[in-house]
Each structure stands twice: as structure tokens, then as C-alpha cells.
Amino acid sequence: MPDDAVELIGKAELPDGGRLHLWRRGDDYSIRFGDNELMGNQVRHSEEALATLACSRLQHRDSRILIGGLGMGFTLGAALQSLPSTAIISVAELVPEIVTWANGPLSHLFHDYLSDPRVKVEIADVHDVIAREKSAFDAILLDVDNGPDGLIHLANERLYCNWGLRAAHAALRPNGILAVWSAYGDEGFVARLENAHFDVEEVSVAALVDGEDVIHTIWLASKQDDCR
């Protein structure tokens, strides 16, 4: 096969319809939903920044964090590099095939992340994990869609609506951080975060997607003191 030939090497059905495709061209891999690239191994900086920015703000060595979405492992890898051996990292992945790819055609990108004793992967909707926990996490990192909406999985809208953000607030420990990755800015989402009693910092991260310069957005929402 020519080095520039595109090969489909995996498909994954989404719970509410639609399909993810894993493509390879030479050494480049891409997870796509229709025409939208959700993750590519050449575009990792902002996904890594989601973890490094959040982890740099944590106050405890035994921090417990929740990552929503396994992707190609860039956020998980950056979290592992940022956190000490006493930390605990839970990963909620909705699509079982993503985990299969992580142990198969994408294993060279994951290195030994999934065997790290700090890591536990659960096949679950991250919304459900958040909703069942109270004061459990020092940080919640969300990269489960293209932004604060339900483009890929309609039920993801539950994460970003007013009551979803209140659930995330309740699942965080004091001074905990909700970090959200997005392919675009969204003033309305910032307002919802503030209404849910978060102090919000917005960070813009340059990225190159399909040969075009773009700006990705990361929101770092710190849980306000309950007595404020």
C-alpha cells in the first residue's frame, strides 16, 4: 500500500446512532465522526494541555481525578506525567472499541499508560460517573465531544447544561477543578459555569487541524467555596 493511501482500520457504533471511524495514513491516525476529526496523533497539544493546566492547579499529592474520554491517550499521558505516584486517575470511556483500539492499533501511542497502577478505566458514560459521586474528585477533565454540546453523543448535553454542571460541582472536592476541552469558544457556556458557582479561567491553545491553524479552548473552572 502506498504511504499516502488512507486505510479504514476500525469502526465503532455510538449508543444513540452514528459511527466513529479510525483511519490510518502512513504513521498518521485519525478518529473521525463524519467529516469531523475528533482526534489525530499529529494534533495533541491542546489535549495534553487539558491535563497539565488542571494538574498544575491541584493542591494534594493524593489527588483523585476523573477523565472523561480516552481518545488517543494524550490527556491521560499528560496527567500521568504531571501527577505523583500517590494520585488516582479514573477514566470513563463510553465506547468500548476505543479501549480496544488503545490496546491494539493505537497501542504505540498509549505506551504503558493503561497498565499504570494509578489508572482505572471504566466503560461508562462520564455523566453517570459524575452523578453518582459526591465530593470525590480533585479534578474532572472532560474531552468527550467537540465542545460543550452533544455533536457526537446527544446525551453529552447533560454534562454541559445547568443541572449537569451542578452535578460536577457536587462531585468535586473543595477547590476542585472542572476542566473542559472545546474546539471553539462559547460565551453561553462560560455563563452557565459561573451560574453553577465556578470561577472560570479560559485558555486559548493554538492547534493545526487538517492543515489549518485553529484555536482550541480550555476552560478551567474552580469550585467556589460553598460559604461564598
Rank of each mutant, 00 (worst) to 15 (best):
L20D: 06
S56A: 15
A136K: 09
K134Y: 01
D145S: 05
D4P: 01
L208Y: 06
L70V: 00
E212P: 02
H197D: 10
E93R: 08
E194W: 02
A131E: 04
A196V: 10
D62A: 13
T86N: 14
V209K: 06
L80M: 07
W181M: 02
N156V: 12
P174N: 05
L193V: 00
L22E: 05
V91G: 07
A155E: 15
R44G: 10
A54R: 12
R132T: 10
H21K: 12
S56H: 15
L106V: 11
I130Y: 00
G68F: 09
L193M: 01
R19N: 08
D3Q: 06
F33P: 05
R173H: 00
R158W: 14
S135E: 12
V121Y: 02
A168S: 15
S222A: 09
R25E: 12
G10N: 01
L109F: 05
D213I: 07
P2R: 06
L154K: 14
R61Q: 15
G71H: 03
H153Y: 15
D16M: 10
D35E: 15
N156L: 08
R118H: 06
I67G: 08
I67D: 01
W163Y: 13
R64I: 07
I67W: 00
E212S: 09
T217R: 11
G69L: 01
V190H: 01
G147P: 04
K120P: 05
L58A: 11
D4I: 05
L14E: 08
S222W: 05
V214F: 01
L154Y: 13
V121E: 04
R24H: 02
Q224R: 13
D112G: 06
R173G: 00
N36E: 15
G17P: 06
E13Q: 14
R173T: 06
E13T: 11
I215F: 00
A191E: 07
L8H: 03
S115H: 13
R166L: 14
D35R: 14
A206F: 03
P2Q: 06
F74A: 13
L8K: 05
S46H: 04
T86K: 10
I88S: 13
I218H: 00
A124D: 09
A136W: 02
Q59I: 15
A78G: 08
G104W: 04
L22G: 04
L83A: 11
I140V: 12
L66G: 10
P105T: 11
W181T: 01
